[in-house]
Design a protein around this nucleic acid. Structure first.
Lengths: 192, 192
DNA sequence: GTCTATACGGTGATAGAC
DNA sequence: GTCTATCACCGTATAGAC
């Protein structure tokens, strides 16, 4: 991995752990093993480097979700896989985390990838739910868009509660509760 | 409002807007109108002042929720009021926000009020849902604890999505989706 | 209680040598 | 491409006068 790459990956980790406001160029240099001069050679400054890191995290999130949503299984199965698939629960969501950062939200360039990926995700999930509804798999009374928004929120909020409790179990409970609401009648569908 | 009080209130606002990592003593002094010496007279330092601010925010959250949950109305009505009651959507939750702050989570003293209030909230809501289930108002298959965890998550995650989209409507959609899942058959219950 | 002075390390860069 | 030097300001205090 070359220096530029190490800088981006180190920045991604630090943004995840500490946010933009809590991440200094010095910390990035220390973690990546790059010197001061190297960092400013490859990037114009902290915002420029953060933009590269944020874009990559957003792209990765999108690709991971798309792989699950376009995979095999019924709609409920795919949604279940998506909700249960998240790892690193106590570290939170690398993209959702950025919404709490005042400087990311204040900078249109840094903000855009965050905004776009959540808009895409909600829409993509709504499409999946609409499919399930058309198939008769889901209750016809469910509105795809609002239900999708609620499910993505459960995921993001589950991270918050898991961190508050310092326990991944809380995330699992949030997801179980959501799946119980989504498919109350589903017997033995892995709905623990 | 005396100086000590203004220091606490200013710190609460700044923790809300910028988190602990993003809030400097200097910014607190500027917002509160207190001088350097004043701040260190009333508090031992930034962590001490932050602790007072966090405790107060947690207490306020608890009191507000309790007022709604112990108020009049059916269980679904009270849950609906709670979920729709949140204001300042784009500012996020003053307590939930702190779960994203590495230094708050790393300090047991600062962390405790956050942990406790979410544990209390989830439990309190689970009790309310159990009541609704016993009354026959809610589906008997709903598990109170996991459902309560999911609902609190929708709220916290709704803030995240609303901030990502810079639009309170997204929060409203998340809540509508959750309420649609909770009481799918409820006709004309304000379930827009 | 509040003020000013002082301190030491960190932040976010720029300049120029190698 | 990477290194070291330098910089002006900020972060988080402590000390002591008023």
């Amino acid at each position: 991995m070359d220096t530029r790459e190490r800088l981006i990956e180190s920045t991604r980790e630090l943004l995840w752990e500490r946010g933009y406001v809590g991440t200094s160029p010095k910390a990035i240099q220390a973690r990546s093993g790059a010197g001061q001069g190297s960092m400013y050679h490859h990037f114009r400054g902290k915002p420029d480097l953060a933009l590269a890191a944020i874009r990559r995290s957003a792209d990765e999130l999108r690709a991971g979700v798309e792989a699950v949503f376009s995979g095999p299984g019924t709609v409920v199965e795919r949604v279940t896989t998506y909700l249960r698939w998240e790892r690193d629960l106590l570290r939170g969501c690398p993209v959702g985390r950025l919404t709490q950062d005042p400087e990311v939200m204040a900078d249109p360039d840094l903000r855009r990838p965050v905004e776009e990926v959540f808009a895409w995700l909600t829409d993509r999930l709504a499409g999946l739910l609409a499919e399930g509804r058309a198939d008769g798999e889901l209750d016809a009374r469910l509105d795809p868009l609002t239900t999708a928004t609620a499910l993505v929120s459960v995921l993001q909020g589950g991270y918050v509660l898991a961190r508050a409790a310092a326990s991944p179990d809380v995330y699992a409970r949030a997801v179980d509760g959501a799946l119980g609401l989504l498919a109350p009648a589903a017997p033995g569908k892995g709905n623990r």
